[in-house]
Design a protein around this nucleic acid. Structure first.
Ligand SMILES: [Mn+2]
Ligand SMILES: [Mn+2]
Ligand SMILES: [Zn+2]
Ligand SMILES: [Zn+2]
Lengths: 157, 157
DNA sequence: TGGCTAATCTGCAACCGCTGCAGATTAGGA
DNA sequence: TCCTAATCTGCAGCGGTTGCAGATTAGCCA
């Protein structure tokens, strides 16, 4: 894969900067992944990103996708979300937010909760919490209609 | 393993009933697992249960442990909890509750939240939620002291 | 109280998501 | 342009979990 393969891709500046700041190199593979993650709200798995990346850059390795995702997560530029029963999902939205997962299609939607600290939590007995993650379950808008039109991800249960 | 191996074990009546009600058999292996799960608040993994079960009933198979746990989960007598980065954990507490996971020792603690429905959630746009699961992160009471005395489970990160 | 048979158990191989490794390649500073 | 540490790829390996098949058995029935 020559560099010319990806000259059309704009590597989001922030991730590029973050890598360079740590002495990490910015390769065409990484630039491609940066661009695929930019504004990506699908909470993709490594495999899903690999599938898209492979079309744009044939020969890119799944190993490299995992490597880059792990690097990004380690430097806090990516959130890691374990979805029930499936593989790890990656979330370029690093804002403090939560998720709603559809029981039928499995998709994750971003959800924002303001008053988390007002929750009345009991039985914490000495446990000191510094954060919380909520996953709501239910049906997404699309899957509430009797004939769902698309199943973009694996359904649960 | 003869039946006499486990005559000392009281199989919790409810699980026994649940199995029989569905035409499933109640074997010594299952009775042992029922008893190991009874009042068990450790959120054990299948391997952990297998380790204990093996001491009491040498020869019991890990496959059988998984089978029984999956059966119990399918009939709603067991909750399945994915803990970050590790193996699935099983929770005989089927009440509506949440968890706090220690960053250091990885232990899961039961937590109860009363006013979940008072949460102000935004961006749900058509998503119909019918439940929520919260995982709090932080340090358990034991791990807040400088020299933690025990590490019962794998620590995170 | 046997006998029957579907359900179960065990052991093993396979599978899945992910990571370690090593040799070939390359980004990026001098 | 050169050099070298960082990276990439391909593959083997690993931990957790499940599929499979032959041996075993719980529980129903005569
Ligand atoms: Mn998100
Ligand atoms: Mn619990
Ligand atoms: Zn849906
Ligand atoms: Zn702890």
């Amino acid at each position: 894969m020559s560099a010319s393969t990806v000259i059309l891709v704009l590597a989001p500046a922030e991730l590029t900067r973050a890598f360079r700041a740590r002495g990490l190199k910015v390769t065409p593979q990484r630039q491609l992944l940066f661009s695929l993650l930019h504004c990506n709200e699908t909470h993709p798995t490594a495999e899903a990103l690999f599938a898209v990346a492979s079309k744009l850059m044939p020969g890119i390795s799944l190993r490299t996708v995992y490597q880059t995702l792990n690097d990004l997560a380690a430097m806090g530029e990516l959130q890691v979300v374990q979805s029930a029963g499936g593989s790890t999902r990656f979330d370029p939205n690093v804002a403090d937010h939560h998720h709603a997962q559809c029981d039928r299609c499995g998709e994750l939607h971003d959800v924002y909760v303001d008053d988390l600290d007002r929750l009345e939590v009991s039985n914490l007995a000495g446990f000191r919490t510094d954060r919380a993650r909520i996953v709501f379950g239910g049906l997404c808008a699309a899957c509430q209609s009797p004939k769902p039109t698309k199943k973009t991800t694996k359904q649960r249960s």
